[in-house]
Design a protein around this nucleic acid. Sequence first.
RNA 1: GCGCCUGUAGCUCAAUUGGACAGAGCAGCGGUCUUCUAAACCGCAGGCUGUGGGUUCGAGUCCCCCCAGGCGCGCCA
Length: 600
Amino acid sequence: MFEVEQQSITTLIQTYCAENDIPAPQDLQWKPIPFSGDWGISTSFFQIAAQEARSGKKVNVPARAQEIAEGVASQIGTPEGFSRVESVKGYLNLYFSSSEFSRRVIDTVLEDGADFGHGEAKAERVMVEYAQPNTHHSFHIGHYRNSILGEVLSRLVEFAGFDTIRASYPGDIGLGVITVLWAYDKFYKGQEPEDIHERGQWLLKLYVEATNLLTPKDDETPEEKAQRETYDAERREMYRKWDAGDPYMRQLWLETREWSLEELRDILSMMDIDIDVWFFESEVDKPSKAIVEELIKKGIADDERPEGGPVIVRIDEKLGLKKEKYRTNVILRNDGTTLYLTKDLALAKEKFEKYSVDRSVYVIDIRQSLHMQQTFAILKLWGFPQSEKCHHLGYGFVSLPEGAMSARRGRVVLFKDVADEAIRRVLAEIAEKNPDLAEEARMDVAEQVGLGALAYAMLSVDNNKDIVFDIDEALSFDGHTGPYIQNAHVRASSILRKADELPAEAAFDYELTPHEIQLVEMISRFPSVVQQAAKEYRPLVMASYAFDLATAFHSFYHAVPVLKAETEAIRAVRLRLIAAARQTIANALRLLAIRAPEVM
RNA sequence: GCGCCUGUAGCUCAAUUGGACAGAGCAGCGGUCUUCUAAACCGCAGGCUGUGGGUUCGAGUCCCCCCAGGCGCGCCA
């Protein structure tokens, strides 16, 4: 927001250095001054001083840095828009003129509204792939982490200025899927529940049952063993039929798949996720086989089928690496079937060619890091320049206090159950804390706040860390939580409702309190936070910011009267400040895929 | 064997990518609702950033050796 001032001062400093025979910096790093009653920007001269030291002069770096800072300070005086300049410990600090800075920030926010913080359009198209649950299973809390991360990342890169495409890639085929089909067809056909979620969860039950029937037991009798082997043969035969395009199997598969997708779509809609492109694993199977042939022809893949082996890519060797890094990967089994990686190659080609994607982000379990690196490396060997701009956003896996989630042990926490529980808890909270809230609004608010708490619990941990999911922690409404941020939005909304109307302008020309300044400062940081979060592919950056912004607001709220301000002019300023804070909180929450309620 | 991730307050996590005094929340203790929503605010207490070296004016951050935990390594996804 103050790039112009920053640039002009950078130029002044460069001139000063040139005139005084000091090595001139090409580009200065400007940072906010860490703590202050008021605020400003700063830069340091350690690097210049160190450079002098290295060139042979005998200098004490900190002292020299301070000397330069003092020289610059006296040279540039107090530039327009700043209230004072100081040199401290080798840093040059420039304090903004409070009134000018504040007015500009607040005017900008209120003018831009929902667009405040939106980055300039970038020339690249980004595709974010997330929400890749397997069908014929139910959506658990691990899938939820994946989806919320992917959605927030999409919103961040989009808002930062990139043309953005959201892609989902459900795993709709594989042995697990066939296992469910087998159990359904054999034991349960026609018994499926009506309700979308019950039906989705029922499929998971079938899977667990079927797996039990098909898994060897230590103490099984010969009869049991024979039974199990018969079952397994039936299952394999079903897979073969599916693969051959058998109409009955295809129909069975499509029908049951649709049940899962209905549930998935409903959950994504609860999460306010709107997927642009649906890729299905089953659809990239055939194309991926053709790719194997192409890679063999190009000499990238080695065909060991004549010796009874698979088709492999010796990635390190083909890249000419001496030390092992990407190792070797199988892209076609010796029975001619494809693997996960093979399909990912086909998928990538589709993304690059059909959707003209320049930058491709994969939100996938961090344990698949090596596989993702291998995929990118093969794409590079294959000749896709976009391979350089493929990024794996790995995230740590979600386990439970009693251990890893395990469908077979019935130890799975489903998203829908947690969401329902969240809403129940918020309703109870409302009954206690805000009994006057209109009955019609309660359910809506409960959904917004309950899901907000859950989303924030996932987003406030850096993506590469594992999460042990504790429902009481995840659904906490106090402290560092989603509702804390939402509550700031509610309080701001409440004040603005009570004010007759928002003053069209206000001059911040009185002695601003530290709380007001802190709030303005937090608001002003939003645009750069958007850019940082998008650049680093880190939702956490925005999550942390939103909390800090809300904290600044809550502190302000308690300390500074608005509706009953000392004078009309001050009231006008504070109303505009609150409107801007509310807008910025709303924008930040929107990027976090968390709703911003008016009441709670 | 090779490689990746993690280790920060009792617990759960941050730290503007090498900058100023390592910050929050929870839990604990003490205050604040006849005043714009107390899902909040204010204060107290809590630290050898796993250990040891190195680079640097400056290291939680970069490099090396260890320690502890987790994960991954040709026909699972």
